[in-house]
């Protein structure tokens, strides 16, 4: 059942393990947003069919692609 009342949900957090496997422009952009190895991201949303992921870091919300998200947290 879909919840109709809004309640601040608690979100899963993940740690950024590496940024080396990400393409250069994406890594540069993430750096500019202050994201670096070791920082903690709260995962707010994941879209179906491996769509984008919304993460929160230091009160900024950022949408990134699923593949980048996986690479950040250490998968391939």
């Amino acid at each position: 059942m879909m919840q109709l009342n809004y309640a601040e949900p608690s979100h899963q957090t993940v740690t950024v393990h590496q940024m080396e496997q990400i393409d250069k422009p994406t890594a540069t952009r993430l750096h500019s947003l202050g994201i670096h190895s070791g920082c903690e991201l709260a995962v707010l949303r994941k879209y179906p069919f491996h769509g984008p992921v919304i993460v929160e870091y230091e009160s900024q919300r950022i949408g990134i692609r699923y593949s980048i998200f996986l690479a950040l947290i250490g998968g391939n």
């Binding site: 393409d23 422009p25 994406t26 952009r29 993430l30 947003l33 984008p52 919304i54 900024q60 919300r61 950022i62 949408g63 990134i64 692609r65 593949s67 980048i68």
Partner: peptide
């Protein structure tokens, strides 16, 4: 071939 860059601030 290159994959596109997509980072968007909300």
């Amino acid at each position: 071939k290159e994959t596109s860059v997509f980072i968007i601030e909300l």
